[in-house]
């Protein structure tokens, strides 16, 4: 009985730790993005609230919480209220299977640094991330506004199209690691990260991850200068905040997934594993921000062409080639 209680307490502890760290990182990613974008555009970015603007996330939260929680008159009330939650929760749920460190030994107990090591971890990630589209679509549909609906439809078709290549680009990884479990995938990259072994899969996965996170150059669902705010045009206050935080949580989660699948997870010389993991995730997030500062938004036909005519065949060919090479190597 006490054994079960200790296990339960450990899982709860890990959940709280992840929840705190991810939310903290998401809040400060907003600030980091604004600062880096500012510097890249020869501005300073937020620097008024607290030293170097470090209290800016707190100020943003207070502002969002004290704003009116507005529901448009002809909107579908329940779906309108639920949709932002779907976005934020699905982003957080993915973190359940992400291993962020090797197994620790605390008081003689083996504590794996992952909430649950599912043997179908990759599929779990694909399933949960395919749920994220419902937040965008239902939010856009329930607002009963043309801009929101257009944003929702765009988000839907974009995410469905890129999910295919996303899944297919992971197949070579699974073939090389011979497991669906994310821990096994990290363990398989002990010596060489998969990014070097299979750069094509890495490229396709990275582009699809950008598309799944609805960020520039794939931010067509929100497209400020065409659709006002896209699917979140009608949202205000903390519900808008949930969409916003969901996007940044998604950034952390996708950064961790890139790290786990291709950058070798927590493996690295000299530094402790946890630091390595954090460093790699932050590097991927910095890359996201850099891309946002440098790239223009794709046109819609370009988006679909890239997804269906380039990335999908490329990842299929990559599966065949990887399979052939693995077979040849025995």
């Amino acid at each position: 009985m006490s054994e079960m209680l200790v296990t339960l307490a450990l899982i709860l502890g890990k959940l709280l730790f992840i929840f705190g760290v991810v939310l903290f990182m998401a809040a400060y990613l907003v600030l980091a993005e604004r600062k880096i974008l500012g510097r890249m555009q020869l501005r300073y970015g937020p620097n008024r609230v607290g030293p170097f603007g470090l209290m800016q996330p707190l100020a943003d939260v207070i502002k969002l919480l004290t704003k009116e929680d507005f529901v448009p008159a002809r909107a579908d009330k329940w779906l309108f209220l639920i949709a932002p939650g779907i976005t934020a929760v699905t982003a957080l749920l993915v973190f359940a299977v992400i291993p962020f460190g090797p197994t620790l030994e605390i008081f003689g107990r083996q504590v794996p640094l992952v909430v649950v090591d599912l043997n179908i971890g990759v599929l779990y990630f694909l399933g949960v991330s395919s749920m994220a589209v419902y937040g965008v679509v239902l939010g856009g549909w329930a607002s009963n506004s043309k801009y929101s609906l257009l944003g929702g439809v765009r988000g839907l078709s974009q995410m469905v199209s890129y999910e295919l290549s996303l899944g297919l680009s992971l197949v070579p990884v699974i073939m090389m690691a011979r497991s669906f479990s994310l821990t096994d995938i990290v363990m398989a990259q002990q010596s060489i990260p998969f990014m070097l072994l299979n750069p094509v899969a890495f490229g396709v996965f990275f582009i699809c991850v950008l598309a799944e996170s609805n960020r520039i150059p794939f931010d067509l669902p929100e497209a400020e200068n065409e659709l006002v705010g896209g699917f979140h045009t009608e949202y205000s206050g903390m519900r808008f905040g949930l969409f916003f935080v969901g996007e940044y949580i998604n950034m952390v989660v996708l950064g961790s997934l890139v790290t786990v699948f291709f950058l070798g997870g927590w493996h690295g010389p000299w530094l402790p594993p946890l630091l390595w993991f954090l460093f790699k995730v932050l590097a991927v997030c910095a890359m996201f921000i850099w891309i946002r500062a440098s790239m223009p938004r794709l046109r819609y036909d370009q988006l679909m062409n890239l997804g269906w005519k380039i990335l999908l065949p490329l990842s299929l060919v990559n599966i065949l080639v990887t399979g052939a090479v693995l077979l040849g190597l025995g």
């Binding site: 500012g38 510097r39 890249m40 020869l42 501005r43 300073y44 500062a293 440098s294």
Partner: peptide, 12 residues
């Protein structure tokens, strides 16, 4: 271009 701009002094 963006990387170079990052290390220049902001005009603000």
């Amino acid at each position: 271009v963006t990387l170079r701009n990052m290390f220049r002094k902001p005009v603000t």
